[in-house]
């Protein structure tokens, strides 16, 4: 495992922790898209079907369990927790799951490395992860005041994607036959979706003003 991959995993973990910190301590999920969180839960469910059959390392298994557990915990908090759910911005979080899930599933059926069930689900999870942030970005655009923790959550997620691209470039040059078009292209699409957010995030940071995305 190289430094880019490890840093990417750590920023991914940080994003989850920042979100749980906000929900658990402030008891608020204002500005957080339930749709995006549900899509992430589905992404991890589809991707980690091999969690018991394919052992890679203790590190991998523990991280998989953390991502699975935390994603379902966050969804539970927003839907069921009696205080947290009151701060959920239902009116503005209107993105439809099916518009993302269905095309990703069809694409996974058509374009995959091997047409076995687990392989298709794995490919589906890659495509879905690439676009799962969209409801969150739409919600940020509609939110007038984005609080620091929400901004940091999206920032860490974007950093995780950017570091994974560095990881793939590194692996391409250091490992024999390391070519993964499906992973790379969906990963690149996913990272590009953050470009706009990063632009405004750094601007607000540089000018020391509150983060706000133009409608």
């Amino acid at each position: 495992m190289n430094i880019f991959r490890f840093s990417g995993d750590m920023t991914h973990l940080m994003s989850v922790l920042v979100l749980l910190l906000k929900i658990h301590t402030i008891k608020s999920c204002a500005g957080i898209s339930l749709k995006t969180q549900e899509l992430y839960a589905l992404v991890f469910l589809a991707r980690y079907l091999d969690i018991v059959t394919n052992f890679i390392s203790l590190y991998n298994t523990i991280m998989k369990l953390i991502f699975l557990g935390s994603s379902f915990m966050i969804v539970w908090y927003i839907r069921r927790h009696r205080i947290v759910r009151r701060s959920y911005d239902k009116e503005h979080d209107t993105f439809r799951h099916l518009f993302l899930v269905l095309p990703c599933f069809i694409l996974a059926l058509l374009i995959n490395e091997r047409s076995a069930f687990k392989e298709i689900m794995w490919t589906f999870s890659l495509y879905l992860e690439a676009v799962a942030i969209l409801p969150q970005l739409v919600l940020l655009q509609r939110t007038k005041n984005i609080d620091n923790l929400t901004g940091q959550y999206v920032f860490f997620l974007g950093a995780y994607r950017a570091l994974y691209i560095c990881n793939w470039i590194y692996r391409y040059f250091t490992e024999p036959h390391y070519v993964h078009w499906i992973t790379w292209i969906s990963g690149l699409v996913q990272t590009l979706l953050y470009a706009d957010f990063f632009y405004y995030y750094f601007n607000s940071w540089k000018n020391n003003v509150k983060l706000q995305l133009p409608a």
Binding site: N60, M63, K64, F67, R171, H177, V179, H180
Partner: peptide
């Protein structure tokens, strides 16, 4: 043949 080492990523 296919390489499956992308599966060792999260």
């Amino acid at each position: 043949c296919f390489q499956y080492n992308a599966k060792d990523e999260l």
